[in-house]
């Protein structure tokens, strides 16, 4: 399996993702600079967290129009798996590959702590190594993670099972208290219609090694490697 990590000016989780992928793949992912629209064929493209282009105008808006993203969008439309983490999720919504938008957190504060998210289904490239309904511990670190989408799109997404992850408490209950940013229906991550693109606000790469204090994020990368081998 081959993977690429896209590096924008202002990305700051690219090397964490590189380490997590290396650990799960046993080989080096390709690091692709935002100006490189021509890179070798890969099975997985990861858009890492950070503050691409300084989050100017709107989070992810500038990155969504960068040369490399035209290529990423074209490959995603052909079915190549794409994972967007945090700022990467914001970029994916700005390109239109994923529905909705990430707005300023409801309490206006930057939230940086471990949260629990419930895995809605294990029937995806990204979640095959998790149990359906499993509550996993993953950190969030964002100012704009408040997921919003119009009612019609939301109900269509729910019908198609496009909600990937929801913020929950330690017991796996979806509660208002467990929602760190005001997201509609506690949404922490969403798929595209074919479940080949996933965007999520939590950072699985930050808890993918017991030495970092937890490894609940590792199964996401392990699952991808197994599915795309």
């Amino acid at each position: 399996m081959k993977a690429a990590v896209i590096v924008f000016p202002g990305s700051n989780c690219d090397r964490d993702v590189q380490v997590a992928l290396r650990q799960s793949m046993g080989s080096e992912p390709l690091m692709v600079w935002h100006k490189d629209s021509d890179f070798e064929k890969v099975d997985l493209i990861v858009l890492p967290g950070g503050f691409s282009y300084g989050d100017y105008l709107r989070c992810g808006a500038m990155a969504a129009n960068s040369p490399v993203m035209k290529e990423v969008v074209a490959r995603a439309r052909k079915g190549v798996a794409v994972l967007g983490i945090c700022n990467g999720f914001q970029v994916l919504t700005e390109t239109g590959l994923l529905p909705g938008v990430l707005m300023r957190n409801a309490d206006l504060r930057f939230v940086c702590r471990d949260v629990r998210v419930k895995v809605e289904t294990s029937q995806s490239l990204f979640t095959a190594k998790y149990e359906q309904g499993q509550a996993i511990r993953i950190p969030v670190a964002h100012h704009d993670g408040n997921y919003f989408v119009d009612d019609d799109t939301l109900s269509a997404m729910e019908d198609r099972g496009q909600v990937a992850l929801r913020y929950c408490d330690a017991a796996g209950e979806i509660t208002a208290e467990a929602n760190p940013n005001g997201s509609l229906r506690n949404i922490a991550g969403v798929y595209n219609e074919t479940k080949t693109v996933l965007g999520l606000m939590p950072h699985p790469e930050r808890l993918a090694d017991p030495r970092m204090g937890g490894s609940d994020g590792r199964a996401l990368f392990d699952g991808l490697v197994e599915a795309l081998r």
């Binding site: 105008l57 709107r58 808006a61 919504t93 909705g100 919003f148």
Partner: peptide, 9 residues
């Protein structure tokens, strides 16, 4: 439409 506004919101 392309950049200045996000017409979702």
């Amino acid at each position: 439409e392309k950049l200045l506004a996000n017409t979702v919101i």
